[in-house]
């Protein structure tokens, strides 16, 4: 029971990250390899805000995604937008290069040991739930990610803006003809997807050590999550994220040695049975 709950906490990181990837992929058709690096950057900016500007956790939770989102917009405008007429794989290669640069720079300036980031005072301590000791902060992580995930889902699936977005995904030319600024929408979407990564980064900062490699290992797992869920639906990305967190949590109890690969094994099985992913549309 306690273990399941812990799995859910990990699942929330997977969900927020794969959601960001899915949003970006939906509109730009780009797999954002830099997602892990931007997640790391989000955590680092949270740390910098605290240590250089004395800005605490709560403002950082908003500010850091804004800064990273802005950075993402800059990347999209100056680089990614030049690649839209080419094969999508170039987008993957470009973002891979960007990830190397970002991680390398942070490694040069901040070393590898990592920085410590204290849990905000309001959320320190925890509750004894009888079956487990639940740190308040972890509970907050789950709550915050659920809210963000479903907020995003609502915005995209249930609002007018979301309708434009979905329409632009299907047929950008037609939507453009209706007088909607599609390139701007693409730019903002990228910024938003990246901001989600940064948000996850700030959430992660107090529990994992803030270090330049924190995103590199995570992103590959998230890729697998995305393949399992399929890129088609926002809800698919969210549910798969939480679900795989649970599965991984169970694996840690019953077969800890295999817990690192369980997601990849599931991926292989899904590929054999339903190649387009659990929630995916055929590509």
């Amino acid at each position: 029971m306690g273990q399941l709950f812990l799995g859910l906490i990990n699942g929330s990181f997977y969900a927020v990250l794969s959601l960001g990837l899915a949003v970006i992929f939906g509109l730009l058709n780009i797999i954002n390899f830099a997602h892990g690096a931007l997640y790391m950057m989000g955590a680092f900016i949270g740390w910098m805000l605290l240590n250089y500007a004395g800005i605490g956790y709560w403002p950082a939770l908003i500010l850091s995604p804004l800064i990273v989102g802005g950075f993402g917009i800059l990347l999209e405008r100056t680089m990614l937008s030049r690649l839209y007429h080419l094969d999508h794989l170039y987008g993957l290669l470009l973002t891979f290069g960007l990830a190397l640069i970002i991680q390398g720079l942070f490694r040069n300036y901040y070393g590898i040991s990592g920085m410590s980031y204290q849990i905000p005072a309001a959320l320190s301590g925890g509750q004894n739930l009888g079956f487990m000791f639940l740190p308040n902060y972890r509970a907050w992580v789950v709550l915050a990610s659920v809210v963000v995930c479903f907020g995003t889902w609502f915005m995209i699936e249930r609002t007018r803006l979301g309708a434009y977005l979905r329409a632009a995904t299907e047929n950008p030319v037609l939507v453009g003809a209706f007088g909607i600024n599609v390139p701007l929408m693409i730019t903002l979407t990228y910024g938003f997807g990246v901001a989600l990564a940064a948000f996850a980064g700030v959430l992660a900062a107090p529990i994992y050590s803030v270090n330049p490699n924190m995103g590199a290992d995570l992103i590959i797992v998230v890729f697998a999550v995305v393949v399992i869920g399929g890129m088609g639906s926002i809800m698919g990305a969210i549910l798969t994220g939480f679900g795989l967190g649970l599965v991984e949590g169970l694996a840690r109890v019953f077969y800890p040695e295999g817990s690192a690969v369980v997601i990849f094994v599931i991926m292989a099985i899904v590929l054999m049975i339903k190649p387009e992913g659990l929630f995916g549309r055929a590509v």
Partner: peptide, 28 residues
Amino acid sequence: ALAVRRQGIYFAMVTLAFAQMVYFFALQ
């Protein structure tokens, strides 16, 4: 045999994920 079922970006991610499995195998 598994990877060629997918194309493009999916293919890239699938191969990456399998390579990661091989990595963990080599580690353990």
